[in-house]
Design a binder for these strands. Structure first.
Lengths: 232, 232
DNA sequence: ACAAACATAGGACATATGTCCCACAATTCC
DNA sequence: GGAATTGTGGGACATATGTCCTATGTTTGT
Protein backbone atom coordinates (compact mmCIF):
# COMPACT_ATOMS: atom_id res chain seq x y z
CA UNK A 1 0.00 0.00 0.00
CA UNK A 2 1.28 3.39 -1.00
CA UNK A 3 -0.27 6.73 -0.39
CA UNK A 4 -0.42 8.80 -3.53
CA UNK A 5 -0.11 12.53 -3.09
CA UNK A 6 -1.67 13.54 -6.35
CA UNK A 7 -4.56 15.94 -5.88
CA UNK A 8 -5.31 16.05 -9.60
CA UNK A 9 -5.71 12.31 -9.84
CA UNK A 10 -7.84 12.25 -6.72
CA UNK A 11 -10.02 14.97 -8.15
CA UNK A 12 -10.38 13.07 -11.40
CA UNK A 13 -11.76 10.04 -9.63
CA UNK A 14 -14.07 12.12 -7.47
CA UNK A 15 -15.49 13.62 -10.65
CA UNK A 16 -15.62 10.37 -12.55
CA UNK A 17 -17.79 8.69 -9.94
CA UNK A 18 -19.54 11.73 -8.57
CA UNK A 19 -18.24 11.03 -5.11
CA UNK A 20 -18.72 14.61 -3.98
CA UNK A 21 -22.43 14.24 -4.67
CA UNK A 22 -22.62 11.48 -2.08
CA UNK A 23 -21.98 13.97 0.69
CA UNK A 24 -23.69 17.17 1.63
CA UNK A 25 -20.50 18.82 2.72
CA UNK A 26 -17.14 18.83 1.00
CA UNK A 27 -15.19 15.84 2.21
CA UNK A 28 -12.17 16.42 0.02
CA UNK A 29 -9.99 17.64 2.91
CA UNK A 30 -10.29 14.23 4.53
CA UNK A 31 -9.68 12.10 1.49
CA UNK A 32 -6.46 10.32 0.69
CA UNK A 33 -5.63 8.27 -2.35
CA UNK A 34 -4.04 4.87 -1.86
CA UNK A 35 -2.69 2.43 -4.34
CA UNK A 36 -2.42 -1.31 -3.87
CA UNK A 37 -0.39 -3.72 -5.90
CA UNK A 38 -1.69 -6.82 -7.57
CA UNK A 39 -2.39 -9.44 -4.93
CA UNK A 40 -1.81 -7.06 -2.07
CA UNK A 41 -3.98 -7.46 0.94
CA UNK A 42 -6.18 -4.55 1.94
CA UNK A 43 -7.59 -5.94 5.12
CA UNK A 44 -7.82 -9.16 7.07
CA UNK A 45 -10.18 -10.85 9.42
CA UNK A 46 -9.76 -9.30 12.84
CA UNK A 47 -8.32 -6.00 11.69
CA UNK A 48 -9.60 -2.73 12.99
CA UNK A 49 -10.72 -0.70 10.00
CA UNK A 50 -8.91 2.62 10.02
CA UNK A 51 -10.37 4.00 6.84
CA UNK A 52 -13.62 3.99 5.00
CA UNK A 53 -12.81 3.34 1.34
CA UNK A 54 -14.18 4.01 -2.07
CA UNK A 55 -12.85 1.62 -4.63
CA UNK A 56 -12.24 3.73 -7.71
CA UNK A 57 -9.98 1.48 -9.73
CA UNK A 58 -9.24 -2.22 -9.82
CA UNK A 59 -11.02 -5.35 -8.82
CA UNK A 60 -11.06 -6.49 -5.22
CA UNK A 61 -11.65 -9.98 -3.99
CA UNK A 62 -13.69 -10.34 -0.84
CA UNK A 63 -13.56 -13.68 0.85
CA UNK A 64 -13.80 -15.45 4.15
CA UNK A 65 -11.17 -17.63 5.65
CA UNK A 66 -12.28 -20.35 8.02
CA UNK A 67 -10.35 -21.86 10.86
CA UNK A 68 -9.75 -25.03 8.90
CA UNK A 69 -8.08 -23.09 6.14
CA UNK A 70 -10.95 -23.30 3.70
CA UNK A 71 -11.96 -20.11 2.08
CA UNK A 72 -14.87 -18.90 0.07
CA UNK A 73 -15.14 -15.97 -2.21
CA UNK A 74 -18.06 -13.81 -1.23
CA UNK A 75 -17.95 -11.39 -4.11
CA UNK A 76 -15.84 -9.33 -6.38
CA UNK A 77 -15.88 -5.65 -5.85
CA UNK A 78 -15.52 -3.26 -8.76
CA UNK A 79 -15.66 0.53 -8.90
CA UNK A 80 -17.60 2.27 -7.67
CA UNK A 81 -18.05 0.43 -4.45
CA UNK A 82 -17.34 0.95 -0.81
CA UNK A 83 -15.41 -0.84 1.91
CA UNK A 84 -15.81 -0.49 5.63
CA UNK A 85 -19.47 0.40 5.71
CA UNK A 86 -20.25 -2.41 8.12
CA UNK A 87 -17.51 -1.40 10.51
CA UNK A 88 -18.24 2.30 10.16
CA UNK A 89 -21.15 2.28 12.59
CA UNK A 90 -20.72 -0.93 14.48
CA UNK A 91 -17.09 -0.51 15.34
CA UNK A 92 -16.80 -4.25 14.81
CA UNK A 93 -13.60 -5.67 13.62
CA UNK A 94 -13.30 -6.74 10.01
CA UNK A 95 -14.75 -10.19 9.30
CA UNK A 96 -13.58 -10.72 5.78
CA UNK A 97 -10.39 -10.63 3.87
CA UNK A 98 -9.95 -8.23 1.02
CA UNK A 99 -7.23 -8.52 -1.58
CA UNK A 100 -6.53 -6.48 -4.62
CA UNK A 101 -6.54 -8.53 -7.82
CA UNK A 102 -4.73 -6.05 -9.99
CA UNK A 103 -3.43 -2.57 -9.37
CA UNK A 104 -6.13 -0.84 -7.38
CA UNK A 105 -6.81 2.69 -6.27
CA UNK A 106 -8.87 3.47 -3.23
CA UNK A 107 -9.98 6.75 -1.80
CA UNK A 108 -9.77 6.51 1.97
CA UNK A 109 -11.37 8.62 4.64
CA UNK A 110 -10.37 8.08 8.24
CA UNK A 111 -13.11 6.48 10.30
CA UNK A 112 -12.93 9.35 12.80
CA UNK A 113 -13.39 11.87 10.03
CA UNK A 114 -16.26 10.10 8.38
CA UNK A 115 -17.92 9.78 11.73
CA UNK A 116 -17.38 13.39 12.53
CA UNK A 117 -18.25 14.96 9.21
CA UNK A 118 -20.61 12.49 7.54
CA UNK A 119 -21.98 10.52 10.46
CA UNK A 120 -25.21 12.45 10.32
CA UNK A 121 -25.28 13.23 6.65
CA UNK A 122 -28.52 11.74 5.28
CA UNK A 123 -27.29 11.74 1.70
CA UNK A 124 -24.27 9.72 2.61
CA UNK A 125 -26.18 7.45 4.98
CA UNK A 126 -28.73 6.71 2.30
CA UNK A 127 -26.00 5.87 -0.13
CA UNK A 128 -24.51 3.46 2.37
CA UNK A 129 -27.91 1.84 2.85
CA UNK A 130 -28.27 1.37 -0.86
CA UNK A 131 -24.87 -0.25 -1.11
CA UNK A 132 -25.56 -2.51 1.81
CA UNK A 133 -28.96 -3.43 0.42
CA UNK A 134 -27.41 -4.29 -2.88
CA UNK A 135 -24.73 -6.40 -1.25
CA UNK A 136 -27.25 -8.18 0.92
CA UNK A 137 -29.40 -8.90 -2.06
CA UNK A 138 -26.62 -10.22 -4.26
CA UNK A 139 -25.16 -12.38 -1.57
CA UNK A 140 -28.55 -13.87 -0.74
CA UNK A 141 -29.07 -14.64 -4.37
CA UNK A 142 -25.64 -16.15 -4.81
CA UNK A 143 -26.00 -18.22 -1.67
CA UNK A 144 -29.17 -19.85 -2.87
CA UNK A 145 -27.86 -20.46 -6.33
CA UNK A 146 -24.61 -21.90 -5.06
CA UNK A 147 -26.35 -24.34 -2.81
CA UNK A 148 -29.29 -25.33 -4.95
CA UNK A 149 -27.92 -25.86 -8.41
CA UNK A 150 -25.15 -27.96 -9.87
CA UNK A 151 -22.07 -26.32 -11.23
CA UNK A 152 -23.11 -26.89 -14.82
CA UNK A 153 -26.05 -24.55 -14.43
CA UNK A 154 -24.11 -22.05 -12.40
CA UNK A 155 -21.34 -21.98 -14.93
CA UNK A 156 -23.77 -21.55 -17.80
CA UNK A 157 -25.53 -18.66 -16.13
CA UNK A 158 -22.24 -17.10 -15.13
CA UNK A 159 -21.04 -17.28 -18.72
CA UNK A 160 -24.20 -15.71 -20.01
CA UNK A 161 -24.09 -12.96 -17.47
CA UNK A 162 -20.54 -11.97 -18.26
CA UNK A 163 -20.96 -12.50 -21.99
CA UNK A 164 -23.72 -9.95 -22.18
CA UNK A 165 -21.78 -6.89 -21.32
CA UNK A 166 -23.99 -4.10 -20.15
CA UNK A 167 -21.60 -1.44 -21.40
CA UNK A 168 -21.39 -2.50 -25.01
CA UNK A 169 -24.87 -4.01 -24.98
CA UNK A 170 -23.66 -6.58 -27.39
CA UNK A 171 -22.77 -10.12 -26.74
CA UNK A 172 -19.16 -11.10 -26.49
CA UNK A 173 -18.65 -14.61 -27.66
CA UNK A 174 -15.09 -14.73 -26.54
CA UNK A 175 -14.33 -14.37 -22.87
CA UNK A 176 -10.84 -13.91 -21.60
CA UNK A 177 -10.45 -15.86 -18.44
CA UNK A 178 -7.95 -14.00 -16.36
CA UNK A 179 -7.63 -16.95 -14.08
CA UNK A 180 -9.40 -20.29 -13.84
CA UNK A 181 -8.74 -20.68 -10.16
CA UNK A 182 -10.34 -17.37 -9.46
CA UNK A 183 -13.34 -18.35 -11.50
CA UNK A 184 -13.64 -21.61 -9.61
CA UNK A 185 -13.64 -19.92 -6.23
CA UNK A 186 -16.11 -17.38 -7.46
CA UNK A 187 -18.43 -20.18 -8.44
CA UNK A 188 -17.91 -21.78 -5.07
CA UNK A 189 -16.27 -24.92 -6.36
CA UNK A 190 -12.87 -26.47 -6.82
CA UNK A 191 -10.67 -25.81 -9.78
CA UNK A 192 -10.74 -29.48 -10.57
CA UNK A 193 -14.46 -29.64 -10.81
CA UNK A 194 -14.83 -26.50 -12.88
CA UNK A 195 -12.36 -27.97 -15.29
CA UNK A 196 -14.32 -31.18 -15.52
CA UNK A 197 -17.60 -29.42 -16.19
CA UNK A 198 -16.07 -27.13 -18.76
CA UNK A 199 -14.68 -30.07 -20.62
CA UNK A 200 -18.10 -31.68 -20.71
CA UNK A 201 -19.57 -28.53 -22.24
CA UNK A 202 -16.69 -28.41 -24.68
CA UNK A 203 -17.28 -32.04 -25.63
CA UNK A 204 -20.89 -31.19 -26.32
CA UNK A 205 -19.79 -28.39 -28.61
CA UNK A 206 -21.34 -25.66 -26.49
CA UNK A 207 -18.15 -23.84 -25.62
CA UNK A 208 -14.54 -24.15 -26.63
CA UNK A 209 -11.36 -23.36 -24.80
CA UNK A 210 -8.49 -21.91 -26.76
CA UNK A 211 -5.31 -20.41 -25.38
CA UNK A 212 -6.92 -19.34 -22.18
CA UNK A 213 -10.08 -17.92 -23.69
CA UNK A 214 -13.52 -19.38 -23.62
CA UNK A 215 -15.66 -19.10 -26.71
CA UNK A 216 -19.37 -19.63 -26.74
CA UNK A 217 -20.22 -21.81 -29.70
CA UNK A 218 -23.87 -22.45 -29.03
CA UNK A 219 -25.47 -19.60 -27.15
CA UNK A 220 -28.94 -21.08 -27.35
CA UNK A 221 -28.02 -24.33 -25.71
CA UNK A 222 -25.95 -22.52 -23.09
CA UNK A 223 -28.92 -20.39 -22.19
CA UNK A 224 -31.12 -23.44 -22.08
CA UNK A 225 -28.69 -25.03 -19.69
CA UNK A 226 -28.71 -22.02 -17.39
CA UNK A 227 -32.45 -22.48 -17.16
CA UNK A 228 -33.36 -19.00 -16.07
CA UNK A 229 -30.72 -18.69 -13.40
CA UNK A 230 -29.16 -15.29 -13.05
CA UNK A 231 -25.98 -14.33 -11.34
CA UNK A 232 -25.92 -10.66 -10.64
CA UNK B 1 -52.64 -11.30 9.73
CA UNK B 2 -54.74 -9.25 12.08
CA UNK B 3 -54.36 -5.63 12.91
CA UNK B 4 -54.43 -5.10 16.64
CA UNK B 5 -55.93 -1.86 17.81
CA UNK B 6 -54.35 -1.83 21.22
CA UNK B 7 -52.44 1.36 21.85
CA UNK B 8 -51.27 0.19 25.25
CA UNK B 9 -49.71 -2.95 23.87
CA UNK B 10 -48.10 -1.01 21.05
CA UNK B 11 -46.71 1.44 23.56
CA UNK B 12 -45.37 -1.39 25.68
CA UNK B 13 -43.35 -2.78 22.82
CA UNK B 14 -42.12 0.65 21.80
CA UNK B 15 -40.84 1.06 25.34
CA UNK B 16 -39.46 -2.44 25.64
CA UNK B 17 -37.23 -2.06 22.60
CA UNK B 18 -36.75 1.69 22.74
CA UNK B 19 -38.18 2.06 19.28
CA UNK B 20 -38.97 5.72 19.79
CA UNK B 21 -35.29 6.38 20.37
CA UNK B 22 -34.57 5.14 16.84
CA UNK B 23 -36.24 8.19 15.39
CA UNK B 24 -35.73 11.87 15.97
CA UNK B 25 -39.38 12.67 15.61
CA UNK B 26 -42.33 10.88 17.10
CA UNK B 27 -43.39 8.17 14.67
CA UNK B 28 -46.17 6.76 16.85
CA UNK B 29 -48.94 8.27 14.71
CA UNK B 30 -47.80 6.13 11.80
CA UNK B 31 -47.35 2.86 13.62
CA UNK B 32 -49.76 -0.05 13.53
CA UNK B 33 -49.51 -3.32 15.38
CA UNK B 34 -50.04 -6.55 13.47
CA UNK B 35 -50.24 -10.10 14.68
CA UNK B 36 -49.43 -13.18 12.67
CA UNK B 37 -50.32 -16.76 13.46
CA UNK B 38 -47.91 -19.62 13.63
CA UNK B 39 -46.89 -20.55 10.11
CA UNK B 40 -48.52 -17.54 8.55
CA UNK B 41 -46.79 -15.87 5.65
CA UNK B 42 -45.72 -12.26 6.03
CA UNK B 43 -44.41 -11.59 2.60
CA UNK B 44 -43.49 -13.37 -0.60
CA UNK B 45 -41.04 -13.02 -3.42
CA UNK B 46 -42.28 -10.41 -5.83
CA UNK B 47 -44.49 -8.57 -3.38
CA UNK B 48 -44.36 -4.83 -3.11
CA UNK B 49 -43.53 -4.02 0.47
CA UNK B 50 -46.26 -1.81 1.85
CA UNK B 51 -44.91 -1.54 5.34
CA UNK B 52 -41.62 -1.23 7.04
CA UNK B 53 -41.73 -3.58 10.03
CA UNK B 54 -40.19 -3.98 13.43
CA UNK B 55 -40.39 -7.52 14.66
CA UNK B 56 -41.18 -7.20 18.36
CA UNK B 57 -42.35 -10.70 19.17
CA UNK B 58 -41.90 -14.13 17.65
CA UNK B 59 -39.42 -15.74 15.37
CA UNK B 60 -39.55 -15.28 11.62
CA UNK B 61 -38.17 -17.57 9.00
CA UNK B 62 -36.59 -15.92 5.98
CA UNK B 63 -36.01 -18.03 2.92
CA UNK B 64 -35.82 -17.94 -0.85
CA UNK B 65 -38.01 -19.84 -3.22
CA UNK B 66 -36.75 -20.52 -6.69
CA UNK B 67 -38.85 -21.07 -9.79
CA UNK B 68 -38.19 -24.78 -9.77
CA UNK B 69 -39.67 -25.09 -6.31
CA UNK B 70 -36.39 -25.40 -4.47
CA UNK B 71 -35.96 -23.24 -1.44
CA UNK B 72 -33.27 -22.32 1.03
CA UNK B 73 -33.31 -20.90 4.51
CA UNK B 74 -31.49 -17.60 4.64
CA UNK B 75 -31.91 -16.75 8.30
CA UNK B 76 -34.11 -16.54 11.30
CA UNK B 77 -35.20 -13.19 12.53
CA UNK B 78 -35.84 -12.46 16.20
CA UNK B 79 -36.84 -9.28 18.06
CA UNK B 80 -35.74 -6.64 17.75
CA UNK B 81 -35.18 -6.72 14.05
CA UNK B 82 -36.49 -5.02 10.99
CA UNK B 83 -38.09 -6.05 7.72
CA UNK B 84 -38.24 -4.05 4.54
CA UNK B 85 -35.07 -2.06 4.95
CA UNK B 86 -33.72 -3.14 1.58
CA UNK B 87 -36.91 -2.19 -0.20
CA UNK B 88 -37.24 1.06 1.72
CA UNK B 89 -34.71 2.97 -0.36
CA UNK B 90 -34.43 0.89 -3.47
CA UNK B 91 -38.12 0.46 -4.14
CA UNK B 92 -37.24 -3.06 -5.27
CA UNK B 93 -39.73 -5.81 -4.88
CA UNK B 94 -39.28 -8.32 -2.12
CA UNK B 95 -36.84 -11.09 -2.97
CA UNK B 96 -37.45 -13.40 -0.07
CA UNK B 97 -40.27 -15.14 1.65
CA UNK B 98 -40.96 -14.51 5.27
CA UNK B 99 -43.10 -16.75 7.46
CA UNK B 100 -43.90 -16.54 11.11
CA UNK B 101 -42.79 -19.57 13.10
CA UNK B 102 -44.94 -18.93 16.14
CA UNK B 103 -47.30 -16.16 17.07
CA UNK B 104 -45.57 -12.97 16.03
CA UNK B 105 -46.16 -9.29 16.55
CA UNK B 106 -44.87 -6.68 14.16
CA UNK B 107 -45.03 -2.93 14.29
CA UNK B 108 -45.63 -1.65 10.78
CA UNK B 109 -45.08 1.80 9.34
CA UNK B 110 -46.30 2.50 5.82
CA UNK B 111 -43.46 2.92 3.33
CA UNK B 112 -44.80 6.33 2.31
CA UNK B 113 -44.79 7.46 5.90
CA UNK B 114 -41.33 6.22 6.69
CA UNK B 115 -40.04 7.90 3.56
CA UNK B 116 -41.75 11.11 4.36
CA UNK B 117 -40.99 11.34 8.05
CA UNK B 118 -37.82 9.32 8.52
CA UNK B 119 -36.22 9.31 5.09
CA UNK B 120 -33.70 11.91 6.16
CA UNK B 121 -33.54 11.09 9.82
CA UNK B 122 -29.89 10.30 10.57
CA UNK B 123 -30.70 8.42 13.76
CA UNK B 124 -33.02 6.10 11.92
CA UNK B 125 -30.75 5.77 8.90
CA UNK B 126 -27.86 4.83 11.14
CA UNK B 127 -29.96 2.21 12.83
CA UNK B 128 -30.87 0.75 9.45
CA UNK B 129 -27.22 0.64 8.51
CA UNK B 130 -26.42 -1.24 11.69
CA UNK B 131 -29.12 -3.79 11.01
CA UNK B 132 -28.06 -4.22 7.42
CA UNK B 133 -24.46 -4.59 8.48
CA UNK B 134 -25.41 -7.24 10.94
CA UNK B 135 -27.46 -9.10 8.38
CA UNK B 136 -24.72 -8.91 5.83
CA UNK B 137 -22.29 -10.25 8.34
CA UNK B 138 -24.45 -13.18 9.42
CA UNK B 139 -25.40 -14.17 5.92
CA UNK B 140 -21.79 -14.07 4.80
CA UNK B 141 -20.99 -16.37 7.64
CA UNK B 142 -23.85 -18.72 6.88
CA UNK B 143 -23.03 -18.76 3.19
CA UNK B 144 -19.50 -19.86 3.78
CA UNK B 145 -20.46 -22.56 6.16
CA UNK B 146 -23.29 -23.76 3.99
CA UNK B 147 -20.97 -24.19 1.11
CA UNK B 148 -17.95 -25.44 2.96
CA UNK B 149 -19.51 -27.87 5.38
CA UNK B 150 -21.81 -30.84 5.00
CA UNK B 151 -25.44 -31.08 5.98
CA UNK B 152 -24.56 -32.60 9.31
CA UNK B 153 -23.26 -29.26 10.52
CA UNK B 154 -26.09 -27.29 9.05
CA UNK B 155 -28.59 -29.55 10.69
CA UNK B 156 -26.86 -29.30 14.03
CA UNK B 157 -26.86 -25.54 13.99
CA UNK B 158 -30.45 -25.45 12.85
CA UNK B 159 -31.43 -27.65 15.76
CA UNK B 160 -29.59 -25.50 18.25
CA UNK B 161 -31.12 -22.36 16.88
CA UNK B 162 -34.70 -23.54 17.09
CA UNK B 163 -34.14 -25.27 20.41
CA UNK B 164 -33.28 -22.03 22.16
CA UNK B 165 -36.58 -20.29 22.47
CA UNK B 166 -36.35 -16.57 22.98
CA UNK B 167 -39.62 -16.23 24.86
CA UNK B 168 -39.04 -18.79 27.57
CA UNK B 169 -35.28 -18.24 27.51
CA UNK B 170 -34.92 -21.87 28.28
CA UNK B 171 -33.85 -24.62 26.04
CA UNK B 172 -36.40 -26.97 24.62
CA UNK B 173 -34.98 -30.39 24.28
CA UNK B 174 -37.95 -31.71 22.43
CA UNK B 175 -38.71 -30.21 19.07
CA UNK B 176 -41.93 -30.91 17.28
CA UNK B 177 -41.17 -31.22 13.64
CA UNK B 178 -44.22 -29.96 11.85
CA UNK B 179 -42.93 -31.41 8.67
CA UNK B 180 -39.70 -33.09 7.71
CA UNK B 181 -40.02 -32.19 4.07
CA UNK B 182 -40.25 -28.54 4.91
CA UNK B 183 -37.23 -28.79 7.13
CA UNK B 184 -35.26 -30.45 4.35
CA UNK B 185 -36.10 -27.74 1.83
CA UNK B 186 -35.18 -25.09 4.32
CA UNK B 187 -31.80 -26.62 4.78
CA UNK B 188 -31.41 -26.77 1.05
CA UNK B 189 -31.29 -30.52 0.83
CA UNK B 190 -33.50 -33.48 -0.03
CA UNK B 191 -35.75 -35.20 2.41
CA UNK B 192 -33.90 -38.38 1.82
CA UNK B 193 -30.58 -36.94 2.73
CA UNK B 194 -31.83 -35.14 5.79
CA UNK B 195 -33.26 -38.42 6.94
CA UNK B 196 -29.98 -40.17 6.40
CA UNK B 197 -28.02 -37.59 8.34
CA UNK B 198 -30.53 -37.57 11.15
CA UNK B 199 -30.25 -41.30 11.47
CA UNK B 200 -26.50 -41.03 11.73
CA UNK B 201 -26.86 -38.54 14.58
CA UNK B 202 -29.42 -40.80 16.19
CA UNK B 203 -27.05 -43.76 15.89
CA UNK B 204 -24.41 -41.70 17.63
CA UNK B 205 -26.84 -40.97 20.46
CA UNK B 206 -26.89 -37.25 19.87
CA UNK B 207 -30.54 -36.95 19.02
CA UNK B 208 -33.48 -39.30 19.02
CA UNK B 209 -36.59 -39.40 16.92
CA UNK B 210 -39.82 -40.42 18.56
CA UNK B 211 -43.33 -40.12 17.15
CA UNK B 212 -42.47 -37.18 14.99
CA UNK B 213 -40.51 -35.26 17.58
CA UNK B 214 -36.80 -34.79 17.74
CA UNK B 215 -35.17 -34.89 21.14
CA UNK B 216 -31.73 -33.57 21.80
CA UNK B 217 -29.90 -36.12 23.89
CA UNK B 218 -26.45 -34.61 23.88
CA UNK B 219 -26.59 -30.87 23.54
CA UNK B 220 -22.87 -30.45 24.00
CA UNK B 221 -21.92 -32.71 21.15
CA UNK B 222 -24.60 -31.22 18.97
CA UNK B 223 -23.22 -27.77 19.56
CA UNK B 224 -19.73 -29.04 18.90
CA UNK B 225 -20.92 -30.44 15.61
CA UNK B 226 -22.45 -27.12 14.60
CA UNK B 227 -18.96 -25.71 14.99
CA UNK B 228 -19.84 -22.14 15.79
CA UNK B 229 -22.34 -21.71 13.01
CA UNK B 230 -25.46 -20.06 14.29
CA UNK B 231 -28.52 -19.30 12.25
CA UNK B 232 -29.18 -16.10 14.14
C1' DA C 1 19.15 -18.82 -20.33
C1' DC C 2 17.72 -21.31 -16.63
C1' DA C 3 15.33 -22.30 -12.48
C1' DA C 4 11.32 -21.37 -9.89
C1' DA C 5 6.71 -20.47 -9.63
C1' DC C 6 2.43 -20.82 -11.58
C1' DA C 7 -1.49 -22.15 -14.75
C1' DT C 8 -3.66 -25.71 -17.24
C1' DA C 9 -5.29 -30.43 -17.83
C1' DG C 10 -6.84 -34.49 -16.24
C1' DG C 11 -6.66 -39.64 -13.84
C1' DA C 12 -8.12 -42.20 -9.72
C1' DC C 13 -10.67 -42.47 -5.94
C1' DA C 14 -13.64 -40.93 -1.83
C1' DT C 15 -17.58 -38.59 -0.12
C1' DA C 16 -21.82 -35.85 -0.11
C1' DT C 17 -25.99 -35.66 -1.92
C1' DG C 18 -29.85 -36.65 -5.17
C1' DT C 19 -33.33 -39.75 -7.45
C1' DC C 20 -36.23 -43.51 -7.63
C1' DC C 21 -38.54 -46.75 -5.38
C1' DC C 22 -41.00 -49.51 -1.94
C1' DA C 23 -42.99 -50.55 2.70
C1' DC C 24 -45.44 -49.21 6.48
C1' DA C 25 -47.75 -46.21 9.88
C1' DA C 26 -50.77 -42.26 10.72
C1' DT C 27 -54.33 -39.32 9.33
C1' DT C 28 -58.20 -37.94 6.75
C1' DC C 29 -62.20 -38.75 3.89
C1' DC C 30 -66.32 -40.86 2.56
C1' DG D 1 -64.84 -49.27 8.88
C1' DG D 2 -62.34 -49.22 4.85
C1' DA D 3 -60.11 -46.53 1.23
C1' DA D 4 -57.24 -42.87 0.05
C1' DT D 5 -53.88 -39.72 1.14
C1' DT D 6 -49.88 -38.22 3.59
C1' DG D 7 -45.75 -38.64 6.44
C1' DT D 8 -41.88 -41.49 7.72
C1' DG D 9 -37.91 -44.68 7.04
C1' DG D 10 -34.75 -46.56 4.31
C1' DG D 11 -32.42 -49.68 0.20
C1' DA D 12 -30.11 -49.31 -4.22
C1' DC D 13 -28.03 -46.77 -7.30
C1' DA D 14 -26.63 -42.42 -9.90
C1' DT D 15 -24.60 -37.97 -9.89
C1' DA D 16 -22.12 -33.96 -8.19
C1' DT D 17 -18.24 -32.61 -6.12
C1' DG D 18 -13.91 -32.86 -3.48
C1' DT D 19 -9.06 -34.47 -2.63
C1' DC D 20 -4.81 -35.94 -4.04
C1' DC D 21 -1.62 -36.47 -7.40
C1' DT D 22 1.01 -36.13 -11.80
C1' DA D 23 2.38 -34.04 -16.07
C1' DT D 24 3.16 -30.42 -19.02
C1' DG D 25 3.20 -25.78 -20.83
C1' DT D 26 3.91 -20.69 -19.63
C1' DT D 27 5.40 -16.86 -17.23
C1' DT D 28 8.65 -14.59 -14.15
C1' DG D 29 12.70 -13.48 -11.69
C1' DT D 30 17.61 -13.29 -11.67
Amino acid sequence: MKRIYDKTLLERYIRQFGIDALFESDMRPYMSLFSYDRGECICNNGDVMEYFYFNVKGKLKIYTLMENGKSLLLRFNKPLSILGEVEFLSGYRVKCNVDSLNEALLIGIRMEDIHKYAGNDPTFLKYVIQCLGYKLYTISNTTSINLLFPLEKRFASYMISIASDETTLQRQNEIKTSNMIEMATLLGTSYRHLNRVMRELADQGIISKKNGNISILDYTRLKEMAGGLLYE
